[in-house]
Computed example of a mutant assay.
Amino acid sequence: MGKTALIVIDMINTYDHADANLLLPSVAEIVPQAATLLKRARCNDVPVVYVNDNFAEWRSHHGELLAKALAGPHASLVEPLRPDDASLFVVKARHSVFFETLLNYLLSQQGIDRLVLCGQVTEQCVLYSALDAHIRHFDVTVPRDAVAYIHADLADAALRMMERNMGARLCSSGELWSTPH
């Protein structure tokens, strides 16, 4: 039996994009649950992998992306979710966490076959990542209260698609791992 990793999608963010005003209320709502989920994963020695858009900053690395987000007007949404020293980090340029990244190789090297996806955007990056995980034979879990959306109706449809078409387990973040000490 393999092991599980928590995949944090696009949460290191300046929110300087076209849909930000529609996204921000949902992000603010999920940050506390996502922060608790991160703490639980870390307390239970579950590997945490941040997979984050590079926002077309082709010369940047994860430290620069984090510094820019923490210096921005929405730092309070990033700070509770910041990577720790044990966190792994993969930079992506498109919607799926797998598309032209080294994530699949990293996961195979770690013996990981189950993924918990949290982050944003449910009806975009989370959905496409769940599909790509499914076709790579990963078991996928999505905690509903730890994924943010732009459009609630599309997010609901995306979650139903993940469950029905990809066999994803939907749950609340509180159902995952033991309570942090």
Rank of each mutant, 00 (worst) to 15 (best):
L6S: 07
Y149T: 06
M1H: 04
L115K: 05
A93Y: 13
L38C: 11
A18P: 02
D10L: 03
Q120R: 06
A20I: 10
T4Q: 14
G63T: 07
I7T: 07
M162A: 15
D19W: 09
H151G: 04
T14P: 03
K39N: 10
A152L: 15
A71T: 08
R114Q: 15
R169A: 11
H95E: 11
V91P: 08
A41P: 02
L106N: 03
V147I: 10
S129R: 03
H17D: 14
P143V: 08
T4E: 15
I30V: 14
Y50S: 01
Y128W: 09
V140I: 08
Q109Y: 02
L106A: 04
L24Q: 00
W177R: 02
I9Q: 12
T179L: 02
A28V: 03
V51F: 05
L117D: 15
F89C: 10
S172R: 07
H62E: 15
L22P: 01
E64W: 01
L102D: 13
R82Q: 14
E79G: 00
A146K: 02
R42K: 11
V90R: 09
F98Q: 01
K39V: 02
A148N: 10
I135R: 08
L70K: 13
T141W: 09
L22D: 14
S87D: 15
Y105L: 13
G174M: 04
G63V: 07
I9M: 13
L23K: 01
A5R: 11
A18F: 13
T122K: 05
D45Y: 10
L65I: 04
A130M: 12
S172N: 12
T36K: 14
S60G: 07
H137I: 04
E123R: 02
A75T: 04
A130E: 14
C43N: 14
Y15C: 00
F55A: 12
A93C: 12
L70Q: 14
A146N: 01
E175R: 05
V126H: 04
L38N: 06
A130W: 10
F55K: 00
L131K: 07
R136Y: 03
N104M: 06
M166K: 00
I7H: 12
E163A: 15
Y128S: 09
Y50H: 11
T179W: 02
A130D: 14
I9E: 13
H137R: 05
A5V: 09
G63A: 05
S87F: 05
W58D: 09
A28E: 13
A67G: 04
I7V: 15
L23H: 06
L106T: 12
N104E: 12
V116D: 15
R82P: 02
P80M: 01
A93T: 13
D19E: 13
P47K: 09
E123Y: 04
L170G: 05
L115T: 05
P73H: 10
L23R: 04
